[in-house]
Each structure stands twice: as C-alpha cells, then as structure tokens.
Simulated scan of single mutants.
Amino acid sequence: MTTPRSDAQLLAAHRDGDPGAFAELVGRHTDRMWGVAVQTLADRDAAEDVVQEALLSAHRNAHRFRGDASVRTWLHRILVNACIDRIRREAARRTVPWPSHDVPSRRPDTASELATRMAVADALAELPTEQRLAVVLVDVQGFSVAEVAQILDVPAGTVKSRCARGRTRLARLLGHLREEA
C-alpha cells in the first residue's frame, strides 16, 4: 500500500510533468474553494467561474510556487484574489442591487431556515469585501487566523480586526433574527 502524496509532492509532480498530479490536488481542494467563493460572491454561477479561473491560474503558475506557505493556502490566496477581482468588476458595472442566491444545503429547508440563510447571505453581501473575506474564511470555512493572514497577505491582527468589525456589522444586520427566535 502506498502512502498518499502530500499537496507539495503533488504540485512538484505536476511541475515535473505528471499528468494526474494536478487533478488529484484539485480533487482535494475544489469543494472547500467553492464554499469560499459562493459565500464570498453570493452567486453560485460566479463562484463556479471564479474557482475555475483560480485553478487554471494555479495550473499555469505552478512553477511560481515558492513554498513559503502550504499549497492549500497558496490555492486559497489565488482564489481570494480572483474573488476580489470579480467583485471589483461587478461593482464597476452594477446598476441594480446585488441578487441574493440561496446556498444549497444537503437537506431540505423549512421556510424559516431558508429565510434565515437568505438573510445571512444578504448580510454577508453588505459587508465590505475585506471583512466578508475574513469572516467567510475564518468563521464559515474554519481557517485559522494565521492561515487567513497568509491567504490575504495581511498581519494576523488585521484579520482579527476585520473579523470583529464584520461580526459586529452582521450582528446589527441580523439582529431581527434574534428578536424573531
């Protein structure tokens, strides 16, 4: 029985011409990357596009990976940059409010659960991009503050303050949910 190759080994094998190495790496990380993108962009179609753009960029630029961070962190940094670019492009041409799209669940929702999820998605969409990314990566996706600091290329204290500000704003935007419960 062979031991599975690490992410770094897979990326090195890809750079050395192994045709299946990058596909295996993608298989390990696509679901989580898609989760970050859909929570950040609040649009499933845009999230799919951004994940594909990020993976294509990673594939093309694998030779630039220096090993300063984990491969997972590197992939998510590429993804976050692609999300920021998409948000900027959309903001430049947006003339109507940002549409809210439901994020799929593995089980059927009751009406109140669906309303809550839609309210959370709308509230996340109202956060400034930097706060939204920090909150999604830390609170939704479970990355550590240190990992998010590497992904966003900012100090850990900045991640903490963005999360704190984002959470405060979310609490204000979603306060009505507490009153309904």
Rank of each mutant, 00 (worst) to 15 (best):
A149N: 03
R60H: 15
T110W: 00
E90Q: 15
A123C: 00
A8R: 13
E24G: 01
G166V: 03
A171S: 12
P4N: 15
A125S: 15
R60I: 03
E180R: 15
E113K: 11
F22V: 03
L55T: 00
A37R: 01
L41M: 07
D102A: 13
A115Q: 14
H14D: 03
A181Y: 15
V148Q: 11
G142E: 05
E53D: 13
Q131P: 00
R88H: 13
T168A: 14
R32K: 11
T73H: 10
R77D: 10
A115P: 09
D153N: 13
S6A: 05
A46I: 01
S100Q: 07
S100T: 13
L56T: 15
A42K: 14
V154S: 02
G166Y: 11
A12F: 03
L177F: 11
L75K: 04
D85K: 14
V50L: 08
P19H: 09
C163W: 13
A42N: 15
E126W: 08
R162H: 13
T40R: 08
A134P: 00
T30C: 10
D122C: 12
E147G: 01
A21P: 04
R32W: 01
I84S: 10
S6R: 11
L56S: 15
V96C: 08
M1Y: 12
R94S: 06
R44H: 08
H29F: 07
L133F: 09
S6V: 04
E53C: 06
S70I: 00
A21H: 04
L56M: 05
A21K: 00
R165V: 10
H101N: 08
A119Q: 10
L79N: 02
F65Q: 00
F143V: 07
A92Q: 08
H59E: 11
V138L: 03
N81P: 02
A92W: 02
L25S: 02
R66A: 13
R44C: 02
A82N: 06
P99D: 01
P155L: 00
F143Y: 15
E180S: 15
E180K: 15
L137H: 07
D122I: 05
H76C: 10
G157F: 07
G142T: 04
T116R: 14
L127E: 11
V145S: 05
G27Q: 04
V140E: 14
Q9Y: 08
D85Y: 09
C83M: 03
L127Y: 08
I84F: 04
E90D: 14
V138F: 03
I151E: 01
V140N: 11
M1I: 14
D102G: 13
T95C: 06
G27K: 04
N61V: 02
R28I: 00
V80Q: 07
D102P: 12
S144E: 04
D85Q: 12
